[in-house]
């Protein structure tokens, strides 16, 4: 080994710390506001909250929409729905995808090939369009939306777990466990799942971000969460026509909410990956 590529040590320590702390704090604020905020704000469904289409003012910080509903209230209460749905969809995808992928990778052979092909078929679709098709087929109820986003993401976790497990399959500690007569299931659960936890966490953050984008996208094209329930994507749709005439507050604020939430989640994922990666 030559020492020719003497590079400065990877920037870690304090720099890496703010990279994860800032987005984490941002996300915490967003979650807290969504959770607690509605108790302090007017009813997001109250069509008499203010003069329709009046702009941001002291009484209505984010303005009023065309039905007279308070935009701030709606953005905050939409946060509840978006975060909750995204979180549960990602959780389902993780809980279903990781064991499936780990199993496929560990067993190998026909199981592996079969599951891989199914996963690939789902991944052959542009995500947004697959979500459109499945939502139409199942009908756009909230549980179905969660199911759709989960289904779209399961293959990602499967592949992740699978590729993490295959090198572990021949690892000493796994061979030892096999010699000790443990069943496949036990080995996967005890030795393999903990080993991929770290990668999975980074992926989870990315999936949540994706889920919010897909959910908002579906609602935007009219097959997600529907009016009058407040949801960021459907709020943007509701304000789209008004952008041309200058009533920007209808769409801009819910869009900023998506942008900031997704940005925070993506940054957390990036930092987590760097944190856990080899130095």
């Amino acid at each position: 080994m030559t020492a020719l590529d003497v590079r400065p040590a990877a920037r870690r320590g304090p720099v890496a710390r703010w990279r994860i702390l800032v987005p984490a704090a941002g996300l915490a604020v967003i979650a807290l506001v969504s959770l607690v905020g509605p108790f302090f704000l007017v009813d997001p469904l109250d069509v008499g909250a203010g003069e329709p289409l009046s702009g941001p003012s002291g009484a209505h910080l984010f303005g009023v929409d065309q039905y007279g509903m308070d935009v701030l209230s709606r953005v905050v209460s939409a946060g509840r729905i978006d975060l909750l749905l995204a979180l549960s969809a990602s959780a389902i995808a993780l809980v279903a995808g990781i064991p499936l992928g780990a199993f496929a990778g560990y067993r190998g052979g026909a199981w592996d090939q079969g599951l891989l092909r199914v996963a690939e078929s789902f991944q052959a679709f542009p995500t947004m369009l697959l979500a459109m098709g499945v939502t139409l087929a199942l009908g756009p109820s909230l549980p179905n939306l969660v199911a759709v986003i989960a289904v779209v993401n399961i293959p990602l976790y499967m592949r992740l777990a699978r590729s993490a497990v295959i090198p572990l399959r021949e690892a000493d500690f796994v061979l030892a466990a096999r010699c000790a007569g443990r069943s496949t299931f036990q080995i996967v659960r005890q030795h393999i799942v903990p080993n991929i936890a770290q990668v999975a966490i980074a992926q989870f953050s990315v999936t949540c971000a994706w889920a919010i984008q897909v959910l908002a996208g579906l609602s935007f094209i009219g097959i997600g969460v529907r009016m009058p329930t407040a949801e960021w994507g459907s709020m943007i749709r509701q304000g789209t026509d008004h952008m041309v005439t200058g009533q920007w507050w209808l769409s801009v604020f819910p869009g900023l909410a998506i942008l900031l939430t997704v940005l925070a989640l993506n940054q957390i994922a990036a930092a987590a990956r760097r944190w856990g990666g080899p130095s």
Partner: peptide, 10 residues
Amino acid sequence: SVPEFWLATV
């Protein structure tokens, strides 16, 4: 991170 449909309106 930006949703394209929102960016379009912006």
